[in-house]
Design a protein around this nucleic acid. Structure first.
Length: 722
DNA sequence: TAGCCGATAGTTTTT
DNA sequence: CTATCGGCTA
């Protein structure tokens, strides 16, 4: 008991209340920087140390693999209980584990494969082609979104009713896609959850087993759960388990991906929780930053209500810069960074945040030019790189000859003379005979030495996979596929790609199947280990990035920054159209979601927060004169220190003067004239620049979308007079 | 079959 | 502007 009590040291009263809450369901409303992860981890440790529950009966769900690993690590230092007996992981990881154990009940092959988003998209493209549906009619991405969002809401094709012809086609494709995935023994991410849920629902014995087993279900980042995940938790906890959900409705920024903040109020109702426990003490940010963030988020209407407070001093005001253009903005950011670093701040205590990845380029150039070490998060992850996917596809096909997707990926990579025509033949033969592409190819290999060569590589790998260790078989796949030779001969990225392939062998060496949480049996065969390694790769986004320990400035999108904190934060591109993004604004509830994103960005900063906007930037090769973000206007003036005198109002006045003095005809248009654009809506022409070819570039103010520069020839049929 | 060129689109992202 | 993709030609 001494041990258990020491866990409670240094907790504040509200944290203490949450950690030692009785064995019943609770919702913890945990504000930014309020020690959310600590509370969740300590809660588990407390339950284990006091003997309230055995690790075997604990189910803990996190949002990322990284968070799960961190939690497992922290727990192992806090309690002596065998933490490995717990079910700890992401929703997807846990469902994968569940389906591995109960693959028969789920109607799955033992070595089922998980499709990541890119895999799923290529399956969809392949199928659309096979069904002779033009991609211009049904966009593959649109169908992917259609399928996933419905699955995330627990809906299959047969539960949908067609609203119109196009919708009916989407539903049909959805149904056919699912049929095909079943046949091929593959599951997309959403399917992992939906299938687990359906198995639990349909199989009473199984359901009762798990409902009895789990006594405590704990969920991190609860505001980011979707409908299906909520249903899954509800089903599993129906045997009387206590649900301990931790989240912050103000930091819900994944609605576009199916996250449903409404789950928080739903939980209160469904689990008869009288009142959420609020963690409102912020240990991260200086007073002004926090007050500014509170002021901003108070503009949102649908909140559960919570106000962060801090004991720390007010600190410095938020510095706001209105830069002339995007280069000037980067320049300013980098100069400030150098100054901070000269004053003794480590680079990795500095983050530069932006709304979209495209904004990172100019910053990167400038950082590179000034030889400041930096690290960009986002972009391609390790297991999403083509060279890695290619290498793994060899192994996947060796493990599972039914895997048509793996077959198509590598049948001619590196090029071995099996072109489109041959592949088409294999495909149509396979469809005719109702066999897999690989089997079809095997039968056709008798006549084609090229196909035979490919088949032999795969068969060799299949044979060896029964005897070799994981790193050995991975190495063999890389060697026999001759991928390294292939990348050597390529013009671009050779070194990076070859390095990555070598890194894959390292990853295989470091891989411990029993730690991945997917292993269902005690002494797995080499094939089983390989199979688990492969599915782990799909679920592992890749904390596999290099250069983790060097001192470098951190560049990332605001989304990627969630959960992190930095001494100094630069938020760039605070402009209407970029942040809030025009796409988001077009959606219902989009503005509030963008505001939450702003809230997340601001609350990342401990001591210093810089916000910058530009007066002019190039976007998609077009001139763009943005208006400063509404979110900046929503921060009370008292908290902002404006670094430059340039005001947007001033700029507007100049433009107005110009309009007054000009009545010239520009290629049929007048300054001050109202027009309508196909995409941007209505706007006012505020300036015109004549080109040598007789056309004119019109500066048009589209209101909240900002000012755009359009060419009269280029955009003629998109512009109409009102 | 493979490489090249022109057309086209162009948020946020973990699993 | 740039990355990606599909179609076309060598």
């Amino acid at each position: 008991m001494q041990n258990a009590l020491s866990l409670l040291n240094n907790l504040n009263p509200e944290q203490l209340r949450a950690v030692t809450f009785p064995n019943e369901s609770a919702l913890i409303l945990a504000g930014a920087g309020s020690g959310k992860t600590r509370v969740l981890t300590t809660r588990i440790a407390w339950l284990l140390a006091t003997g309230s529950v055995s690790p075997h009966a604990v189910l803990a769900v996190t949002f990322t693999n990284k968070a799960a690993k961190e939690m497992a690590h922290r727990l192992s230092t806090m309690v002596s209980a065998n933490v490995k007996q717990m079910w700890l992981g992401t929703f997807h990881g846990l469902c994968c584990r569940f389906l591995r154990i109960h693959h028969r009940d789920a109607g799955l092959p033992e070595n089922f494969r998980i499709l990541d988003s890119a895999d799923q998209l290529s399956v969809i493209k392949r199928l659309l082609k096979e069904w002779n549906i033009a991609e211009s009619y049904i966009a593959p991405k649109a169908l992917q979104g259609f399928i996933n969002s419905h699955k995330e809401n627990g809906l299959r094709a047969n539960a949908l009713t067609a609203k119109d012809e196009y919708h009916r086609h989407l539903i049909e494709c959805f149904a056919h896609y699912d049929t095909r995935c079943r046949k091929e023994g593959v599951l997309d991410f959403a399917e992992l959850l939906l299938r687990s849920y359906e198995v639990l629902q349909a199989n009473e014995a199984l359901r009762q087993h798990y409902q009895q087993r789990f006594r405590h279900i704990l969920i991190d980042e609860f505001q980011d759960t979707n409908k299906l995940q909520y249903a899954w938790i509800k089903l599993l906890s129906a045997g009387g388990a206590a649900v301990f959900a931790v989240g912050d409705d103000d930091q819900s920024i994944y609605r576009f991906r199916g996250a449903n903040v409404g789950n928080m109020s739903l939980l209160l109702k469904d689990f008869a929780i009288c009142e959420p426990i609020k963690l409102e003490h912020n240990y991260r940010s200086h007073g002004i930053i926090l007050k500014a963030a509170n002021a901003l988020i108070s503009h949102n209407k649908n909140r559960l209500g919570k106000n962060l407070r801090t004991d720390s001093e007010d600190g410095e005001k938020i510095r706001f810069l209105s830069a002339e253009n995007d280069y000037a903005e980067s320049h300013f950011v980098i100069e400030e960074i150098q100054q901070l670093h000269r004053n003794g701040l480590n680079y990795n205590e500095i983050a530069v945040l932006y709304r979209n990845n495209a904004q990172s380029r100019i910053l990167e150039q400038e950082l590179f030019a000034q030889s400041i070490p930096y690290r960009i998060y986002g972009g391609l992850r390790f297991y999403e790189r083509q060279e890695i996917k290619h290498a793994l596809a060899y192994l996947r096909l060796a493990v599972n000859p039914q895997d048509n997707d793996a077959f198509l990926r590598i049948v001619n990579v590196p090029p071995r003379g099996i072109g489109a025509k041959t592949i088409e033949n294999i495909q149509s033969y396979a469809v005719e005979e109702e066999i897999s592409y690989f089997q079809a190819a095997c039968q056709m290999a008798v006549r084609s030495p090229k196909i035979a060569a490919f088949i032999n590589i795969i068969k060799e790998l299949a044979t060896q996979s029964a005897v070799l260790t994981l790193p050995e078989i991975v190495e063999l796949a890389i060697n026999n596929s001759q991928l390294i030779d292939y990348y050597q001969s390529q013009k671009t990225d050779q070194h990076e790609r070859i390095d990555n392939l070598e890194e894959l062998i390292n990853a295989a060496n470091a891989f411990r199947a029993e730690e991945s949480g997917f292993m269902a049996v005690e002494n797995p065969t080499p094939q089983a280990v390989l199979s688990v390694f492969l599915s782990n790769a799909s679920l592992e986004a890749g904390e596999h990035q290099a250069g983790n320990n060097t001192d470098a400035v951190q560049l990332m999108t605001i989304h990627a920054a969630k959960g992190l904190e930095f001494d100094s934060v630069f938020l760039t591109g605070a402009e209407e159209g970029i942040f809030p993004s025009e796409y988001a604004l077009a959606e219902k509830g989009g503005e509030e979601e963008e505001r939450r994103l702003m809230y997340v960005a601001m609350t990342r900063a401990k001591k210093r927060l810089y916000i910058s906007a530009t007066l002019y930037r190039l976007l998609h090769g077009q001139s763009f004169y943005p208006v400063v973000s509404r979110f900046v206007e929503e921060i009370p003036d008292d908290f902002i220190h404006a670094l430059s005198p340039i005001k947007h109002k001033e700029k507007e006045r100049q433009l107005n003067d110009f309009i007054q003095n000009n009545h010239q005809n520009f290629d049929g248009f007048f300054i001050g004239e109202n027009i309508r654009h196909e995409k941007f809506g209505t706007g006012v022409i505020i300036n015109a620049i004549q080109k040598t070819d007789g056309s004119t570039n019109l500066l048009i103010n589209f209101g909240s979308l900002g000012i755009k520069e359009l060419n009269t020839h280029f955009a003629k049929d998109k512009l109409s007079k009102i």
